[in-house]
Amino acid sequence: MDRMNSISQDCNELKHKYDDCFNDWFINGYLKEKPDAKRGANKKAVVPCEALLLAYQECTKQALETKGIKLSEVTQDILGTDQDKSRTHPGGKPKN
C-alpha cells in the first residue's frame, strides 16, 4: 500500500518509521492485550513507540507553525489528565 505523507515532506521518513511501529503495536499489542492485564495497581499512561514519536513531533512542530497552523487553540498537552476527562472538544459546541 502507498504511504500517507506528512504535511511536511521533510518529516516523511520520521513519520513512516513511527507509523510502522504504531500499526504493529496497535494490531499485535494493543488490540490483543487483555484489558487491565498489565495495569492493575500500577495504572500509568503509556506512549507507544515513544522515541520515534518524539523525533517525529519535533520535526512536524516547526513545519506546522511555518504553515500557519495554530494548534495552541485546539490542542494542549492535557491528554490523559483530569482536565482531559472533563474537556469538551473545541468542535463540540458552536462557536460565537
Binding site: 500517507m4 504535511i7 511536511s8 504504531f22 503509556v46 514519536l53 506546522l64
Partner: peptide, 16 residues
C-alpha cells in the same frame, strides 16, 4: 497529508 500530534494510552487503557 496527515500528522500525529499527540498519542497515548490513558491510565484506563483508552488510546487517545
Amino acid at each position: 497529508g496527515m500528522d500525529v500530534i499527540n498519542r497515548r494510552v490513558t491510565e484506563e487503557g483508552v488510546l487517545h
